[in-house]
Design a protein around this nucleic acid. Structure first.
Lengths: 158, 158
DNA sequence: TTCGATGCAAATAGTTTGCATTCTA
DNA sequence: TAGAATGCAAACTATTTGCATCGAA
């Protein structure tokens, strides 16, 4: 990368537009780099670098783990990708625009839910009121019990 | 540990009472184990295993890192200690009863603030209302800008 | 005197970096 | 064909585990 130009977090609507952003920034569109983007566009939840390198476990062509990390860093610098930590274990990567408002993780059933913009706004307002903090929830999830598991503490679904 | 008896998270008010809990559970009070507790009682913020092993950087006697991890695991199983992740880098350990209601991390100035019980309750209620989730904030912090940094975005204090 | 706990070393997971080679622009 | 990106290997950080030895009860 010569000089990080488009550092505003601009979500790419499609693989095509993401590639356009790469080109617009003087970056090359290599096979490995395109692959990382393809996996991210194919995944609906945040995925680990390992999962990307394996091509989502074989559904897509595999590539080198070190290159995946380097590409994720590049894509993150462009604002096309974010990373977050949904618990212990490897970090997870998502396209900007998917779950930007935050995530909630259920400790009982393990499910990860995106927060809707309106939900996040409500919570942000509460935090602002209680603490003065201007928060976002994009790097760590909110952890607790989802509605279902909170009601049936002994028999968590799934 | 023979059999984890006191698994209810009972905060120890003092080093003395923590040692009592160890004894009550048939665990031995070794030098290394007492040292881990001493560091935790001396620290006001959550500390890394590395910081504990170094005796808070020399202020207290040092000990072996692997033993520190093993002891933290034991103390966590007894409910005397919790761990959390305040950002990237190593996990941090705290005594139960210190910041159980959660933490808020400022991205600009890097400070970590404990949430007060009432603050946490307000936020929990908001999350419950918005999402149905029954949350706690003890494993990951709330991340954002503290009141001061939110007001002066370009000149973060300290 | 026994077995729980220690200390050292080696293993493991996640991530980063160095460097010669490949391939995009 | 210049230099960005790759792939492999090695380094690094955080954490866990094996095992012979030590020491608290």
């Amino acid at each position: 990368m010569t000089d990080p130009v488009a550092v505003r977090p601009l979500a790419a609507a499609s693989l095509h537009s993401a590639i356009g952003t790469l080109r617009a920034n003087g970056l090359r569109v290599s096979t490995a780099r395109r692959l990382v983007l393809e996996v991210l566009f194919a995944a609906d939840l945040p995925v680990s670098a390992e999962a990307i390198a394996s091509g989502l476990g074989g559904r897509l062509p595999a590539s080198d783990l070190a290159s995946v990390y380097r590409n994720l860093e590049t894509l993150e610098a462009l604002g096309l990708v974010r990373h977050l930590h949904l618990g212990h274990g490897p970090g997870r990567y998502v396209l900007t625009g998917r779950g930007d408002d935050g995530w909630a993780t259920c400790e009982a059933c393990g499910r990860h839910e995106r927060l809707a913009r309106a939900q996040a706004a409500q919570v942000r307002a509460a935090v602002r009121g209680a603490t003065g903090f201007e928060v976002h929830f994009s790097h760590f999830p909110i952890v607790g019990l989802c509605r279902d598991c909170a009601l049936a503490p002994d028999a968590p679904p799934a």
